[in-house]
Amino acid sequence: MTIPASTIASDDAAVVFDGVSKRFPASGESAAFTALNNVSLTVARGSITGIIGRSGAGKSTLIRLVNGLEKPSSGKVRVDGVDVGALDEGGLRNLRRSVGMIFQHFNLLSSRTVFGNVALPLEIAGMDRRAIDERVRPLIDLVGLADKHGRYPAELSGGQKQRIGIARALATEPKLLLSDEATSALDPETTQSILELLKRINAELGLTVLLITHEMEVVKAVTSDVAVIDKGEIVERGQTFDVFTHPKHGTTQALLSGLPGSKLPEAIARGLAPAAAFGGRVVVRLTFFGAAAERPLISRLIQSIGAEVNIIAGTIDEIGGKPYGSLVVAYGADPETVAKAERFFLGNGLVTEVLGYVA
């Protein structure tokens, strides 16, 4: 679970950010700026933790601190209890063998085959050819490309290239896998297959995954825990289900507004009024989860209030393996109907938000 660094046992922590700030000095035409400001965050061993935020929020700087590509200006980053910022070059090389990395743009060598790309970090480490073969072939099979050993990157699709990038990241048998916008260049169907692969690797290998993304759909699909970063600061964190169903910070709420079922149809949104007119209808967003997501709520609502209910928008989905739903409905705005509806919502554990009124 993603929780404050001080409340988790060190044996359970894969990565700890302890009061980390990163400041970049002025350079050429670029002014000095602070990319990260006093970040404290713990990534639990064996979790898939998402770091989400808008472009420029500090996500990539955060992940570069983990493998020592950047050093903090203040504070400490610990990986398996080791202070990354205190390591010399030899220590960093050892660390990076235990930290795999997959990238948005794959970073494959065009002159090398699939096998050669996956084998590269092992060759650099000085492993003999037989041992390399014994390590690489099962990894290529694991990512579902058993028939592509001798192909070159130019012959592969984007999803296949990313699978090879994942196999290469696993070649040194890391304990931690860093993913920096790894699905941003892929279409939705391919993205889903890559996320399923990451979930399988996490489950089968017990690998901790730290996933950087700006895509809420990715976080929803694969992570158990999430931290939201804005202007270099962690503004919200917790289990993914809790953050998605009860977002507290404005940045989180804004990011979640783009998810299917969260946005009103434009024609309805334009017609919303802040107060009810005579004979008008109230527009309400209902959020429900757990057992409530499996009940026939709308039919029961109609029976309870004795009035018609229009469904305007909605979605039923899963977050962190738990059922979750969001519905936007409209019903009569007269006081009696509204009071009956509020009693129904309260009795069924639904979270409600009045969005406005329509004639």
Rank of each mutant, 00 (worst) to 15 (best):
A277E: 13
V283N: 06
T251N: 00
P296E: 14
G320C: 04
L327T: 01
S326A: 07
G261S: 05
G314M: 11
L327W: 08
I302M: 14
T287D: 08
A276S: 13
E308V: 03
K322E: 09
P296L: 13
E308Q: 08
S262M: 15
I298C: 04
A292I: 06
V309G: 02
S299F: 13
A275R: 15
L286P: 03
G325S: 08
L255T: 03
R295C: 04
A276T: 05
Q253A: 04
I305Y: 07
S257D: 08
E294P: 06
G258V: 06
T287N: 13
F278I: 14
T287L: 11
G271Y: 03
L297P: 06
K248F: 00
H249A: 02
G306A: 13
G261H: 01
R295W: 12
P296H: 12
L301Q: 02
A307E: 14
L255P: 04
E266T: 14
R281I: 05
P274A: 12
A293C: 10
R300C: 04
S257F: 07
V284C: 05
T251K: 00
G261I: 02
A273L: 15
P247W: 00
P260D: 08
K322P: 01
V309A: 02
F289G: 07
A313Y: 03
I312M: 08
I312T: 09
Q253V: 02
L272K: 12
A292T: 11
K263D: 09
G280T: 08
G280V: 09
A291Y: 11
P323R: 12
A293Y: 10
A273K: 15
A277Q: 14
E308I: 02
T287C: 11
L272A: 10
A293S: 14
T251E: 01
P247G: 00
V284N: 02
G314A: 09
A269N: 11
V283W: 13
